[in-house]
Amino acid sequence: MGVFDTIRQVLGLSAEADAAREADPEDLFGMSTAYLTMEADLDFAPTGDAALCFSNVDSTAFQRAREEVEAILAAGEAETGTTAEFVEDAHGYHWVVLHDTGFEDLVTSIHFAADTLVEEGFGSRLLAALFAFERDGQTAYWVYSFRRGSYYPFVPTGGRERDNKVEFKLESVLDGELSVEDDTTYWYPMWPEGDAHPWG
């Protein structure tokens, strides 16, 4: 079983039975204040990137839902300046990738995309939302697992390694402000390809 097969299993199918609580797209708004703490207390600044990961469904209804998400984000771009692109990674996962220097606009756009898929009956296809931060050349992510209904930190260092010390520091500072996953066995890595973000 490959790395991304494992992620699909734990963030998708198998984690459904272990879900701590039902995921709620409203949880994403927790990042609207958490990013201020990341910057003020930890010196991690937003990179201006966020992404929503989901698995595709070969159905007309899902295609319509996806087109609705695209339309909502395209309409929002004129108002907020948030740009969106839809990409498929090398492992077959689909991503809505958003870029904006205004972090709160990123959060709002990710919420719109996730909430639309939930309302259209495809909430089970949502895997994770990622918010990227950077400090001294090191990238850290807050990952929201839709299967667990909670956040966890992920700090890759290259070569399929992660900085657990920084992850635990992020957890200790943000726990209480975000609904952080208590069980660290569910802090699943979403490895980037090379030096890129996990979405490509």
Rank of each mutant, 00 (worst) to 15 (best):
K169V: 12
E193R: 09
H111M: 05
L106Y: 00
M190W: 11
D115S: 14
D58I: 13
W142C: 08
Y188W: 12
F86M: 05
G121L: 06
R8H: 13
R21E: 15
T157I: 12
A65H: 04
S150A: 15
A140G: 08
D163N: 13
F168C: 09
F86R: 04
Y144F: 05
Y35L: 01
P189G: 10
D183Y: 07
F146W: 04
E120V: 08
F4P: 10
M31W: 01
A113N: 04
R160N: 13
G81Y: 01
K165A: 15
P189Q: 09
A74T: 09
R160W: 14
D18L: 15
A45N: 05
S179M: 09
Y152C: 05
E161F: 11
H99F: 08
T83L: 02
A71S: 14
L127M: 09
L73E: 03
Y152P: 04
V57Q: 14
V87S: 08
N164C: 11
A65S: 12
A34E: 01
F146S: 04
A23T: 07
S55T: 14
W187P: 05
K169Q: 15
N164H: 10
Y144P: 04
R148V: 10
P46A: 01
Y144I: 02
S55W: 06
G159K: 08
E26P: 12
E68V: 03
R160C: 13
H94Y: 12
F29W: 08
P25I: 06
T101H: 08
